[in-house]
Design a protein around this nucleic acid. Structure first.
Lengths: 337, 337
DNA sequence: AGTCGCCGTCGAAGCGCTTCGACAACCTAT
DNA sequence: ATAGGTTGTCGAAGCGCTTCGACGGCGACT
């Protein structure tokens, strides 16, 4: 391993000078800088991360806590994680991957050991047990998701309330009167992950204003479960003409079942999905959808964190505005009779 | 931040004694050990990661390089990543998430800076540009995937050749004579990621032995693309009765299209997928499949790496035996006429 | 010409830990 | 009783870096 001292010797300067060339924290003459930079090149020097962390008490690492469960749409998680890693690198940070498994202990461990300078938490529950810890350490953090109490926290999330409202508006605008919401798996609601409830709230409130009748059914996804759910929906509300699907793994089963029952999309029933664009465009019917801006969320989370680490940045809740893209799965309500 | 020295003072021993209690590298009397452990508890001590890394030249971090692209089945990647993180923790390691973006530079950076003690590389190409670097550093590494030349490397992967063979055997055993392989996206082949080609090789070789005729078509997934692909297949080989699908995002489109064309699965055509069990059981038809043991691969990769780090462990290629599970998508070939 | 201030560089201290050699204290075998 | 071997603990050195204060040299003022 090449050390700073060796670079210094090779360049004929002192160690501290090399350090200042690297960090830019003091001015260095052009000549010296170039000599040092050449030596670094020639020797293939890479600063030792441990020594750096020890001396500067900054590890240049951001911890990312991803959920262990896989009952939520995994590609979204992955996309966020990759966006976090990529964005972090552009700011000179690396990303430490923590699974939810260790729970609050992981927060203690990482904070206590100085392993990471900051944390990003995904899959935050309404009343998450990691939040008190986060508030009491002075380690910067950003949540992707929205807990019940956001005091002293920075959160980035899609505005799911507005998402729900947007779906209601679109369907109401097309003349629909009875709509069904195919929600996330029951476990997601039991866990109080918030986003599912927020979507539903937004949708219900706006529906009421617009005179829509809403039937909500959680659904685990998969064909068999979806078949049962769908049967119940039409049983209870035979005049349902609009569907809002929140659980991506229920989308394709729903479309297949509707087709099988001779209900054409979008002629007889309209379907809106809340899902990444990729899913919407690759489905068997090109889906009208509200996108989940996974990359954007990851990127924004990192940028807020970096701002905090630089002493800029404040506690703040960032809700990304939802965008509804009309594709081929929604249309005007069929004329009665 | 609580330091070792403070713990030592609190417990009335020297710093080195506390260190030895922590590492277990020298024997410590029961009494002293207990006193130290109590002090650690009471003070809430966490060893500083940077200092540790500097003094011991071990960071207790494993770097995991995941592909940036998302043209491969993402949930598999995610499952591997999570298995890696979880398994690593049980061995006292944390995981650093690197994206493929930086390419070989990331390897240099991580190796050179001592940021990580070892690396796991996913999505390895046949002639991957990171491999020469890996061979010349003495940093332990494990590949998930199989490059062309494995000398001096440790690899963990599903035995895709055997997977292909297994599919051929199953279909041949059911009396099929003409089969089609719906492969990965063309980009995957162009990139020479190996696994797609290996599956095909295994399938072709065994098919020849068994007298099967094979038609291979790369396919990007999605309904429109699949429709075109399928039409061509039946155009070229009207008597095709068996399908092997390697691209998970082509599975559901294929099933839908077959249904739409009035070809019943498994009565008229049989379909085998190479995919995680979860996909196989949640599809519109319960799919006969060869599982991709993502968790197992992640776990094994870490265990090999830890073995190497402990001075045990050797360079070795581990190919996991494929397992075919018969479900409801394959059956005997329909009697002619 | 003398003083002030700035720029560029250096030396040294110290970050919190691991680890090596030293050394009491004790036990066993002669 | 004494030599030799354990066992448990300590002190000190050092890992490679950052950062602070110091200082020589120079140009810009008066």
């Amino acid at each position: 391993m090449v050390t700073l001292a060796e670079v210094a010797q090779h360049a004929g300067v002192s160690a501290s000078t090399v350090s200042y060339v690297l960090s830019g924290k003091r001015s260095i003459s052009a000549g010296t800088r170039q000599r040092v930079e050449r030596s670094i090149q020639e020797l293939g020097y890479h600063p030792n991360a441990g020594a750096r962390a020890l001396a500067s008490s900054r590890s240049n690492i951001i911890a990312l806590m991803v959920p262990l469960r896989t009952d939520m749409y995994v590609p979204v998680m992955m996309e966020i994680a990759i966006a976090v890693a990529t964005t972090a690198r552009t700011h000179g940070y690396d990303v430490l991957l923590l699974t939810g498994e260790e729970g609050p202990d992981a927060v203690r461990r990482v904070t206590g050991s100085g392993l990471a300078d900051a944390m990003i938490l995904m899959d935050v529950e309404l009343d998450d047990e990691r939040l008190p810890l986060l508030r009491q350490t002075n380690q910067p953090s950003v949540l992707i998701g929205l807990p019940a109490d956001t005091t002293g926290l920075t959160c980035v999330d899609l505005d799911f309330t507005a998402t729900g409202a947007l779906c209601a508006e679109h369907l109401a605008g097309l003349g629909h009167r009875d709509i069904a919401v195919i929600g996330e798996a029951p476990a997601v609601y039991e866990r109080h992950t918030g986003f599912a409830e927020r979507t539903l709230d937004g949708l219900r409130v706006r529906s009421q204003e617009l005179g829509l009748r809403v039937l909500h059914r959680p659904c685990e996804g998969g064909y068999d479960v979806m078949a049962v759910t769908l049967a119940r929906v039409f049983d209870e509300r035979p005049r349902t003409t609009g569907f809002v699907v929140q659980n991506e793994s229920a989308v394709e089963p729903l479309l297949a079942l509707l087709r099988q029952q001779g209900r054409a999309v979008p002629e007889d029933v309209s379907v809106i999905a809340v899902c990444p664009d990729q899913v919407a465009t690759q489905a068997s019917v090109r889906l009208t959808s509200v996108a989940i801006p996974a990359q954007e969320m990851g990127r924004r989370a990192v940028e807020h964190l970096v701002a905090k680490l630089d002493g800029r940045g404040t506690d703040e809740v960032v809700l990304l505005a939802p965008e509804l893209t009309v594709r081929a799965s929604t249309g005007p309500v069929p004329s009665a009779g």
